[in-house]
Write a protein that binds this DNA or RNA. Structure first.
Lengths: 219, 219
DNA sequence: CTATGGTGTTAGATTAATCTAACAAAATTG
DNA sequence: CAATTTTGTTAGATTAATCTAACACCATAG
């Protein structure tokens, strides 16, 4: 069984492996906020346990077993976040830190009960998919708001970043998942976008913000 | 901040200190299922942190600071147990193992929300008092069923032992907190007691069981 | 194609939590 | 009260996870 530390490395590897699948030691060291020698030795341990493929001076990659292990931890994390928001009344900006701890709990029934009580949700409060019990993750391909054009009507469906600061920024503008945004205009100079929704007839969103908003086109 | 290991030692010390307040190294070693040298060194660490009073070859005792720290961990444990039973539908025999892990989570809001959602309960699913936010523990003095006499009517209010096996034994007899027991007779030879309640007109309980059942006299 | 900076590794130390073996103090018991 | 048993301590080793310092590989920029 993976230690909490090992679980955290697996999770980071999973998240860094999104596209390219191969992760450099330095990237992982940076993500985990530890030194490269620490990562080097941990990667050897993960390899011994069959979770990663690793050869000296080569980038690291997760094995299918490692991917599954990581996905199941992420499942616990996201189920917890959803439970905290839906069943305990927390705001989406408050749940990450708590879920970061709860995800390490070994108690299958605990998470199964959460899942049941919520009616088996498939996405977390930030729009990220919840891996299933087999560790399979549903691929969703949303569009970034920065890729949309003036005139389009889109629905806010996810975020590429869920930092507390960003979530508080969105709260400050009453932006939450499901919001229908009408793209009023797009500034050629700085790629900022003006959107309207609910009681917000004209809210300007910078490119930096638009890149992080994942949307589904409505019309 | 106490490590999870330190928290577990504090909890054990608190539980062992119920009456006499002074705990021997060997008792603690036995409770924690580690060797005496391990306890010896850990006790020195706890002392450095101001949680215990300790002198070579003398028994250990908790300081007020140590007692508070321990009580607050026990508070998290018991709130969790109550939440699992009342809000998540677990049986009282299933919750200890989960609470044992959840109690180490550092997230005051998480436990405050549980508390709120349950309407600030004062006892856990096994009838043990939940310490308050200041770590104060309400003294309840129940009677052991083994001290009761034939003819008395009592209400099951607590347990001195909450092992899964014992809880399953009670489940098998439909005995749960709040049950009204009428003491039909008491056997002089082996101190077993015959009680009646609900659909159980005559259930014999051994001395070993009666000692572990805490009751309130009704009449 | 070599010099240099960045990336990765090795060696060795540190801290927390544990162990066993050996010894010391205290308590019990004949 | 002396002998033995129990309880407690010290010393030294181990494992996991981390660090820094020093060295090695490699990729790219002149």
């Amino acid at each position: 069984m993976a230690s909490q530390t090992e679980e955290n490395y697996l999770k980071s590897l999973f998240n860094l492996a999104n596209d390219k699948n191969e992760i450099n030691i330095s990237e992982l060291a940076n993500q985990m906020q530890v030194s490269m020698p620490t990562v080097n030795s941990m990667v050897k341990t993960l390899q011994k346990n069959g979770w990663v493929i690793y050869e000296k001076y080569k980038p690291v990659s997760l094995t299918p077993k490692g991917k599954k292990e990581a996905a199941l931890i992420i499942r616990k994390h996201r189920l917890t976040e959803m439970f905290l928001v839906n069943k305990m009344g927390f705001g989406w900006e408050e749940v990450h830190e708590i879920a970061e701890q709860v995800e390490h709990i070994h108690a299958p029934k605990f998470f199964e009960r959460m899942d049941e009580m919520m009616g088996f949700p498939t996405i977390d409060p930030h729009g990220s998919p919840i891996p299933d019990k087999q560790g399979r993750i549903q691929e969703i391909n949303y569009l970034s708001l920065s890729e949309c054009k003036a005139g389009q009507v889109v629905k806010l469906a996810g975020l590429t970043n869920s930092s507390t600061e960003f979530l508080e920024f969105l709260n400050g503008r009453n932006l939450s998942l499901g919001a229908e945004l009408t793209i009023r205009s797009k500034e050629v100079y700085d790629h900022s976008i003006v959107v309207s929704y609910l009681n917000h007839p004209g809210e300007t969103l910078s490119e930096k913000v638009c890149e992080k908003l994942l949307v589904k086109v409505v019309e």
